[in-house]
């Protein structure tokens, strides 16, 4: 059968066969791996909660509510005219994270929607609930390391580097906000 001489012309074909089999096996293994990787991505029930609707009809001026969006706390706050006027007076250039009043309320003037996650190390700042300390600037106060935010969620003092993050949101109607 296969002594060295007769096997010689066979070798290219043999190589091709081995390579083809090996390549097919490798492709198959890679394809079979995908479900085992993808199963760790958010499941359908989690993805379904990517957007949240919030009824804001009960919020009066100067009040805020806490809600949950994508498993994170969100503050929805209606500012009073006085708070807005006060905030307009602040020179944006002096702020650590320079954002104007309009940038903090991009959808509707008077409505602030931001994440209740301190930009320092992720604690939940106080100030949205009734009777909670609002910090030295009358907005939010993070008790973990003493970050003070103003009523527009802008960082004014303390270790936090950035203003409270504003998630994407729209007004579906006058009383319903869709976050996400």
């Amino acid at each position: 059968m296969a002594d060295a001489q007769t096997a010689q012309p066979d070798i290219p074909r043999r190589d091709f066969l081995y390579i083809a089999t090996g390549a097919f096996g490798a492709v198959g293994t890679a394809a079979a791996l995908w479900p085992f990787i993808n199963q760790m991505n958010p499941a359908a029930n989690v993805r379904a909660l990517a957007k949240t609707e919030v009824d804001v009809s009960a919020i009066e001026e100067g009040m805020a509510i806490k809600t949950i969006w994508q498993s994170k706390p969100v503050f929805v706050k209606r500012l009073t005219a006085a708070e807005i006027a006060e905030a307009e007076k602040v020179d944006v250039a002096t702020l650590r994270d320079k954002q104007t009043v309009a940038e903090r309320m991009p959808v509707k003037r008077g409505w602030l929607v931001n994440l209740g996650v301190c930009t320092h190390l992720g604690c939940v700042p106080l100030g949205a609930g009734q009777g909670e300390p609002k910090g030295d600037y009358g907005g939010f106060f993070c008790p973990c390391h003493g970050s003070h935010y103003d009523p527009l969620g802008r960082i004014r003092r303390g270790p936090a580097p950035l203003n409270l993050e504003i998630p994407p949101y729209t007004f579906k109607s006058d009383t319903v906000i869709e976050i996400g």
């Binding site: 066969l17 083809a20 097919f24 198959g28």
Partner: peptide, 11 residues
């Protein structure tokens, strides 16, 4: 896919 792989692996 596996049928093709089976033929290849048989060869």
């Amino acid at each position: 896919f596996l049928s093709i792989l089976a033929v290849l692996s048989y060869l």
